[in-house]
Amino acid sequence: MRSFSHLNARTVSEAIAALVQFDGRARLNAGGTELFGALKDEFLPEYPEAVINIKSIKGLEYIKEEKGHLRIGALTKLSVLSESRLLRERYGALAEAAHAVAGPQIRNVATIGGNLCQDVRCCYYRYPRHIGGPINCARKGNGPCLAVNGDNRNHAIFAGRKCFAVCPSDTAVALALYDAQLVVVGPQGERQIAVRDFYTPIENLLQRTEIVREILIPAVTGTVTQSFSKFALRTPIDFAIVSVASLITLEDGICTDARIVLGAVAHNPHRALEAEEFLRGCRLDVEVSRQAGEFAIREAKPLSKNAFKIQIAKTLVSRAIFGQPAGFVLKGNFSETTSSTQMCSGKH
């Protein structure tokens, strides 16, 4: 990698001070699994002057319940989340989502903060500098989105605008399901941003002098079933082609509340509001789940090569609502009693 200064921040404030000191020309590093890919391939127009290690900040690795919330420290590793008993019992979709990321070595170091803040995986945007690149595009503020007329098999089917890259984060999908907030700290103090609102078509809302400190999840209460499923060509390594997280409240077989979030279909985790609305008051069965799938994709507008994602999204939604997901759907296999199997039990 080209040279950069390196600093170890001991506190959140030190990290912010360092970001300020470099006037935005520094990058925070937690797990490093995304940052160093970007720095090695040099696909971005700017190269940071400094890398600020935030793993050295003590006390940002935790999962705790308090005051009607679950709080997760931004430096909590994905492997810890996927193995957390508390998460598996009460926030299973998040445990599944964390487990669905990359491979074991990555999950051992990648943090939830990093997973949420990672850059998109668009093959044009990330085209490496050293093979005749990089490629300019809308996301780099220089030209159109090349995916529109190019290979867009992995791009957005919803709400595409300017840049058609999709939010690659698996955990964002689960967190959007819970209406989680990011607690972000900067020179001006602290603010909260809903995970659902965090991603715009061109970037995320984190300022260059800010750091994600914590994720705040409103407590999941009552008898809900939840799921996270991810469709990809392979279980490990791959980013999602489509993922779906769902949270269903049932009373006597009737759905009283439903939340459904689609991943890898838009620049942000995409809430399937029409499908949710449709499900409320329904007795769940095959036909209802099929219709919910149709509602979930009604607004989809595919590009030239990604209409197949609509069919997959539809299938994943209807399977999340009712029925046993077939063997292909990515599911954590760390335990026989995952949240998804909880979802499936009791309804058959």
């Binding site: 044009y124 490496p128 093979i131 005749g132 190019g150 290979d151 390594i237």
Partner: peptide, 24 residues
């Protein structure tokens, strides 16, 4: 995967070029 108009190979890395893993 080659871009049909520019000729760039778009999956020249071991994430986007798919290979069989131990899991499958």
């Amino acid at each position: 995967i080659i871009d049909p108009t520019t000729g760039h190979i778009l999956n020249a890395n071991l994430i986007d070029y798919k290979w069989r893993t131990f899991s499958e």
